[in-house]
């Protein structure tokens, strides 16, 4: 057994937004632990709060309640200055490589921006700045001639590589990957995913991998959290989750994975209805409205997560 060290611990994290029509529960009581060098997948449909979760952990949104421990330190109350120092260790790769790069900055400028903001390289020292940028571009597989190109001249895959290089420049320990490949073509998705995995192997990052693409998380993650309307509904090791999904929502999600074989018997669980509103949600299981197995008990009170087997947690009344 390899010894692992805890890097990130989230305890009862909540993020509510107040909107004109009520309080929006974007992230509602999420807890988990992420070890060094591991990948935690977060899956769920659009609007389930998975992106908000990632951003709240980095304190790009202020958490409403709950605690975030990074490297053993509670970072929820840290001031701007100490947070800035921490940002060297925790970074984010965004979904849309078209929107996440400043259109007025060249590739070289974007990458050096990380180094300059965090003071890793002296701004005056052009030589070592250029050297480091070239190093990083090489690392993510960008040709050196692209250094003076602007993002609008590059394709999605190359842009996403810039986004990765910018993060890599800081040598972080923990990276939130907010659907990093869902905006890319399938052929490029694989390249970028392989790059991210290679980088993890050589630098030992921990990833929080947010996606709606189950085949991607299956490929990458050690552990998976399934979210529905801000709530964690199931959490398990990847192999266990795919072998034995217990929550009806997880079952429906997994049944929706396309199989590249036309003769494969299709056994889809089709969900009725729409995602209910996350504004002032009713008590009880958030999924009860669409759940084919819902009973009265589901609508009475929030269902706590229960450990059904070691490291496999489910929030469902049917499971005991």
């Amino acid at each position: 057994m390899q010894e692992t060290r805890e890097l990130l611990r989230i305890e009862h994290l909540k993020k509510y937004f107040s909107t004109p029509s009520g309080i929006l529960h974007a992230v509602d009581d999420v807890s988990f632990v992420l070890d060094e060098g591991k990948t935690l997948g977060v899956v769920g449909e659009s609007g389930c709060g998975k992106s908000t979760l990632g951003r709240t952990i980095l304190r790009l949104h202020e958490p409403t309640d709950g605690k975030i421990f990074f490297d053993g330190q509670d970072i929820t109350g840290l001031d701007k200055k100490r947070m800035k120092a921490l940002r060297r260790d925790m970074q984010i790769i965004f979904q849309d490589p078209f929107a996440s790069l400043n259109p007025r900055m060249t590739v070289g400028q974007t990458i050096s921006e990380s180094l300059i903001i965090q003071g890793l390289v002296d701004k005056q020292d052009k030589r070592s700045l250029d050297k480091r940028v070239a190093e990083l571009m090489d690392l993510v597989g960008l040709a050196p001639r692209l250094i003076n190109s602007y993002p609008h001249e590059l394709d999605g895959g190359r842009r996403q590589r810039i986004g990765i290089a910018r993060v890599l420049a800081l040598n972080p320990k923990f990276i939130v990957c907010d659907e990093p490949v869902s905006a890319l073509d399938v052929s490029i998705q694989a390249q970028v995913l392989n790059l991210m995995q290679d980088l993890q192997d050589s630098f030992g990052f921990s990833y929080l991998f947010i996606t709606h693409d189950l085949s991607v998380v299956k490929h990458l993650s050690d552990e998976i959290i399934v979210m529905y309307l801000g709530k964690m509904v199931e959490k398990a090791k990847t192999s266990r989750l795919f072998a034995n999904p217990l929550h009806p929502y997880t079952q429906a999600l997994l049944s929706a994975i396309p199989v590249p074989d036309p003769d494969f018997p299709v056994n889809r669980i089709l969900l009725e209805g729409e995602l209910s509103s996350p504004i002032n949600p009713a008590p009880g299981c958030r999924f009860a409205k669409r759940c084919p197995k819902a009973c009265d008990k589901c609508r009475e009170a929030d269902i706590p997560l229960k450990e059904v087997e070691p490291d496999h947690f489910v929030a469902c009344t049917l499971v005991r």
């Binding site: 951003r55 800035k84 996440s100």
Partner: peptide
């Protein structure tokens, strides 16, 4: 836009 958020995440 996301590139502003990226700058924030870098601590700008």
């Amino acid at each position: 836009q996301e590139f502003i958020e990226a700058a924030r995440a870098l601590g700008a």
